[in-house]
């Protein structure tokens, strides 16, 4: 996969802000899951969210894709769209967020009744109304590039977890989003299959895709991320360059978390 082949959805202007989030809050019942989260994602940048389960990192991702509607906060997308979540209009505006981003799920969430190819072209053809022939061609190219040539007519249950997740990634790419969101993309995989999925994500990062990745794979974060954000209890505890956050954190909580992941016993 060479970088020049990638159909980047927008012209890449390095360092230009793609997504700016301020004061994101979300409660489920009495439980405040996000307590004022700020986030800046520049074009071509990889931001990884790490933290213990229940820290709110997945909720941040789901808010960015409109799968959850936050209670408060403002999200601004590259000057094209500003959503103020504290207004009633936000419920409609989240569709705008959804149009600009695409999610890769922990459990893949492929459509079991559709073939691999149908899974990939569903969004481009049914939602974006692109010509089917063009969508099919693009889907075939994308599938070939993640090593799934020849699997177009397979059904998801016929594939390994790693293959299914690569289909999940291609399904997201086919939407030509400006932002890719990965929700623990390798957490449901058998250990020997983690590498093939991370390799694909790493290549996408190198090609210049902008992405926010929730992950427990610290080695991956260290290699690929431009920024690592450590969350705990619904707040950002520490953020910065991976070498700092993962190797030499300022905060004690970050140090404990990283130590636990690196030395589980």
């Amino acid at each position: 996969m060479s970088p020049t082949e990638t159909p980047l959805p927008v012209e890449v202007v390095p360092d230009a802000a793609l997504l700016t989030v301020r004061g994101l809050r979300k409660s489920f019942g009495d439980h405040e899951v996000l307590k004022s989260i700020d986030l800046d994602v520049r074009r071509g940048e990889v931001v990884t969210l790490i933290g213990p389960s229940g820290s709110g990192k997945t909720t941040v991702l789901r808010c960015l894709n409109g799968l959850e509607v936050p209670d408060a906060g403002v999200a601004e997308f590259a000057g094209q769209l500003t959503v103020d979540f504290s207004t009633p209009m936000a419920k409609k505006q989240v569709y705008g967020l959804r149009d600009r981003s695409a999610m890769v799920f922990q459990h893949y969430n492929l459509f079991p009744h559709k073939t691999v190819l149908e899974n990939v072209i569903e969004g481009p053809v049914q939602v974006q109304k692109r010509p089917k022939a063009e969508a099919v061609q693009e889907a075939r190219d994308l599938l070939a590039r993640v090593g799934l040539a020849g699997k177009e007519s397979s059904y998801p249950f016929e594939l390994s977890g790693g293959q299914q997740q690569r289909v999940g990634i291609v399904r997201a790419l086919a939407l030509r989003p400006q932002l890719l969101l990965f929700d623990e993309p390798t957490s449901a995989l058998d250990p020997e299959l983690v590498g093939e999925v991370l390799a694909v994500i790493k290549e996408l990062a190198e090609e210049g895709w902008t992405m926010v990745v929730v992950t427990h794979e610290l080695a991956f974060a260290r290699q690929v991320a431009d920024e690592v954000i450590f969350m705990d209890g619904g707040v950002v505890v520490e953020r910065g360059h991976p070498d700092t956050v993962l190797r030499n954190p300022r905060e004690e909580r970050t140090r404990q978390f990283v130590d636990r992941l690196l030395n589980p016993f």
Partner: peptide, 21 residues
């Protein structure tokens, strides 16, 4: 599974489209 609704939504489908397709 709820994830099927979410997968439909994430590719931009409306509730009705997700339900039917």
């Amino acid at each position: 599974p709820k994830g099927q609704w979410e997968a439909g939504h994430t590719i931009g489908m409306s509730r009705r489209q997700t339900l039917v397709r």
